[in-house]
Computed example of a mutant assay.
Amino acid sequence: MRNDDSPPRPEATAASAGPDHRPWFTRRPTLVIAVAALAPTALAGWVLTQVLTGAGPDGRDAKPAATATPPPATPAAAPAPAPAPAKGPLSGRTVVIDPGHNTGNFDHTDEIDQKVDIGTNRKECDTTGTTTDSGYMEAEFTLDVSQRLRTALEAHGAKVVLTHTADRPWGPCIDERARIGNEAKADAVVSVHADGVSSGSRGFHLILPAKVKGGAADTSAIVEPSRRLGERIASNFARTTGSSPANYLGGGTGLVVRDDLGGLNLSTRPKVFIECGNMRDAKDAAQLTSPDWRQKAAQGIADGIVGFLGG
């Protein structure tokens, strides 16, 4: 017999277990399978959340390496500034140096034989120049001395312009050489040469412009300053190189006046030619082919220009 305080009967407990009226323990495998199926999905979601939020394994923020901000690029080094022009007594002065001839002239005789107007008449565009007995070209000598001369003058602060640096196959023509000095408004122009006369004729000489007027030629304004330039160079050249004025012209002064050179006739700036020695004489040739002597030659010419310009 059962009263109200009696524990429920087993069948009553089973009947209240769920809507399908099955005991709870008969539905456990289904629940386990459902949870197992959801676990991979939840794990994948958690990993994605960690990646997107930047959280590390301990819950703190930690950006993945792939999304880390790269270090700022190192800026390219600024180009070194161009060296400032040397300051010196010739600052603000312009000197044009004309290396006589061109080594390529020997291969372009048709071009250099063409006549150009030099004011008073017409003359060949340029010539080949001479050589020593061993084949050292005058054009090699003149370019070497001219480049050394440029260095010496720039050290005094001068702006130096060369009419060419053997960067062209031939020339330039004598009228163009004069024009380069004129257009540069040069304070002084020197054309560097070496002579090619008979052996035994030795020494240097300066060629000065004569007073000429005709066509595009008018040297009246440059005759006197050109003479002063020539005298300055002659005295300094003799002292620096130990060479003597020519023994075959100029009466021992080392100065000669000519009216047949287009480079002088067409110049409107103080200008001289210097024949540094005779390439056809063995003793002079030994000096002209010596780098040490060529350095002295360049320095002697530079000292003369500096003196002429009041440096």
Rank of each mutant, 00 (worst) to 15 (best):
R228C: 05
A42Y: 10
N182L: 03
V190G: 05
P64C: 08
P81V: 03
G56R: 12
I97E: 14
H156Y: 12
A77K: 15
D218F: 00
D167V: 13
S134Q: 13
A210T: 14
G56V: 10
G104W: 07
V223Y: 09
I233Y: 03
P8I: 02
D144V: 10
A37G: 12
Y248F: 13
E11T: 08
P72K: 04
E275V: 05
S220P: 12
G254N: 07
T268V: 00
T132M: 03
R177Q: 09
D303W: 01
M279R: 10
Q114S: 12
H164Y: 07
A166D: 15
E183N: 04
N121V: 03
T120C: 11
E111C: 04
S191D: 06
I112P: 04
I301E: 02
E154S: 03
V116R: 12
A80N: 11
G263Q: 14
L264I: 07
R179W: 12
A14S: 13
I118E: 09
V47C: 10
N102I: 11
P57E: 12
R22T: 15
G311K: 01
T127M: 15
A194N: 01
N182G: 03
T142L: 06
A246W: 00
S226L: 02
T132Q: 05
L48S: 10
V96P: 01
P99H: 07
P79Y: 04
P72N: 01
D195L: 06
A166F: 13
M1N: 08
Q299M: 07
G119E: 02
A37Q: 08
T130H: 12
G242R: 00
P10M: 08
A42I: 09
R22Q: 15
E231R: 05
G215C: 00
G119N: 05
A17C: 08
T151D: 15
V145W: 01
F204S: 00
Y248G: 01
G310T: 05
N102D: 06
S267L: 06
T163L: 00
N3H: 11
N121L: 06
D20R: 14
T268G: 06
P75W: 09
I174N: 14
F204V: 05
K211E: 11
A80L: 13
K115L: 15
L43V: 11
L208Y: 10
P83W: 07
L43F: 13
D98Q: 06
P19M: 13
H156Q: 14
M137A: 13
Q147N: 15
R28Y: 15
R258T: 13
K87N: 15
E231D: 02
G129P: 10
G88E: 04
T30F: 11
V161E: 08
A158P: 00
H205L: 06
L90W: 02
P10R: 09
A298G: 13
Q147K: 15
H101S: 09
R228K: 07
A194M: 08
